[in-house]
Design a protein around this nucleic acid. Structure first.
Length: 456
RNA sequence: GGAGGAGUGGCCGAGCGGCCGAAGGCGGCGGUCUUGAAAACCGUUGUGCGCAAGCACCGGGGGUUCGAAUCCCUCCUCCUCCGCCA
């Protein structure tokens, strides 16, 4: 809590979405038309994501209808004002004064009703923003326990000694220092030193290069973004508590993932069908306050306030997003395969998915010290959910109406967790570390790391 | 940080407080002409909400007015000059 820079000053409840020539005139996320057209179905889908969401549907529907009614009432009033007003310039004297008085009433009424409509609009928007994306109908319904193990890839190595947790491996190699980090920044921070820092850099660079080869355009984005960008991808208001932000009336948010910036790269634009899919990759630090996770993963690199992650984002059309999810996931898996890390692929159940996700695969890497698999990548198809709010559209042909894009994101991979997985899976009985083949070109050909440094 | 200037449709660029969703040009699309193409000419060409009538949008927000792209305030962005510093 103390980690949030500016907890005292509340930010406006709803983003100031651009008005006018932009879709939805505000921050709705799921298609508002669905609420009108098939409310029961939407409610059923929300139920799959969690009872609280389904419960909120009544309010959403009510606000939506109320807003529509008042809005059209206002439109009518404005129309009358407009037509009457047009007569003004042909009138003179008493007739004009008379009409002016009458028009003043219109003016006042419009002002009053306008306030009402604006309030409703904000309430409606706020209500919509708290609804998660609709889950894929083909994924299991339920929480974490309902997740499906799709495939287990690679065989965990059998150790002829007791595998140590990564923090022990790292500290005894002298490349990892939690105490130094605690002294300057507190809990959930770490310092990599010497070969450790270099290993981290090698991992990140290795990932970027592989993804570049597969058609992702590398991006070095801002790490501080405006609130609107966070709303665009659905991090805010939903995960507001888990973000760091600067202390200002209009705060900057520290990105919790490069997904925010990569998706917002095409914010408020209409793309042509030919340029799709747009694919971005970025290496960035990620900042998370981890509010509410006290006591979980307190040791080691698993859960940090700050970590590097290589993120993949694909922006595509409605018809190809399902296929693109598989492609993106394969690109993430490629890294694990090249590094020789055993992992399994999970298809997430409806309640375990992130807020914006329609369908999600988690990749979980094997950690010998725990004897379990831990998340190292999460690949999601967010369909039009983010695109609607970030206003990312595409046009199939001249004259055709713009359509909402579909956005996908996935870690490829979390660098800290990859480092951790390597420390655990590649540790040797003598305390040394074998360098995975794929990384050696990035480390001057070194094949081993000992307490004295890299060795050929 | 100081002093000026500017923000209009895909782009360029007009726009007296009402007849302006906005002239004109370019680009795009369709057509006429042509063996074909170019040129020329004609037409068409923003986005959102709404079943529709219609309403909204001229950088964002607010104000004045019966009525604002046009006037006022404020914020943002960009350009020029000066200072300062990676």
């Amino acid at each position: 809590m103390a980690l949030v820079y500016n907890p005292s000053r509340p930010v406006p409840a709803v983003s100031r979405a651009p008005r006018g020539a932009l879709p939805s005139q505000g921050g709705t996320m799921i298609d508002p038309r669905l609420i009108t057209e098939k409310p029961e179905w939407v409610t059923a889908q929300m139920e799959r994501r969690g009872p609280a969401y389904a419960a909120a549907m009544g309010k959403v529907t009510r606000l939506n209808e109320e807003w529509k009614a008042k809005k059209s009432e206002l439109d009518d009033l404005r129309h009358q004002q407009k037509t009457e007003s047009a007569k003004m310039r042909d009138l003179r004297g008493a007739a004009q004064a008379e009409l002016r008085a009458k028009l003043k009433e219109y003016s006042d009424a419009i002002k009053a009703l306008g306030e009402t409509v604006k309030d409703l609009e904000l309430d409606r928007e706020e209500a919509f923003l708290h609804l998660p994306n609709l889950p894929d109908e083909r994924i299991p319904t339920g929480g974490e326990e309902a997740n499906l193990v799709e495939e287990v890839i690679g065989t965990p190595r059998s150790f002829d000694f007791e595998p140590r947790p990564h923090w022990e491996v790292g500290e005894s190699l002298g490349i990892l220092d939690f105490e130094a980090a605690t002294r300057m920044s507190g809990a959930r921070f770490s310092v990599l030193i010497g070969p450790g820092a270099r290993l981290e850099r090698a991992i990140a660079q290795f990932m970027l290069d592989r993804h570049g080869e597969r058609g992702y355009v590398e991006v070095s984005p801002p790490l501080l973004v405006k609130r609107d960008a966070m709303v665009g991808t659905g991090q805010v208001p939903h995960l507001e508590e888990d973000t760091f932000k600067t202390d200002a009336e209009e705060p900057f948010y520290l990105i919790p993932t490069a997904e925010v910036v990569l998706v917002n790269m095409k914010r408020e634009s209409i793309l042509s069908a030919e340029e799709l899919p747009v694919k971005f990759v970025a290496l960035t630090p990620c900042f998370r306050s981890e509010a509410g996770s006290y006591g979980r993963d307190v040791r080691g690199l698993i859960r940090q306030h700050q970590f590097y992650k290589v993120e993949l984002v694909t922006i595509t059309d409605q018809d190809s997003s399902a296929q693109e999810l598989v492609t993106l996931r394969n690109d993430a898996e490629n890294i694990l395969n090249l590094l020789g890390l055993p992992y399994r692929r999970m298809l997430l159940a409806s309640r375990d998915m992130g807020f914006a996700a329609h369908r999600t695969y988690d990749l979980e890497v094997w950690l010998p010290s725990e004897g379990s698999y831990r998340e190292i990548s999460s690949c999601s198809n967010c369909t039009d959910f983010q695109a609607r709010n970030a206003m990312i559209r595409y046009r199939t042909a001249q004259g055709e109406k713009p359509q909402l894009c579909h956005t996908l994101n996935g870690s490829g991979l979390a660098v800290g967790r990859t480092l951790l997985a390597i420390l655990e899976n590649y540790q040797n009985a003598d305390g040394s570390l074998t360098i995975p083949e794929a990384l050696r070109p990035y480390l001057g050909g070194a094949s081993r790391l000992t307490a004295t440094g890299f060795e050929a």
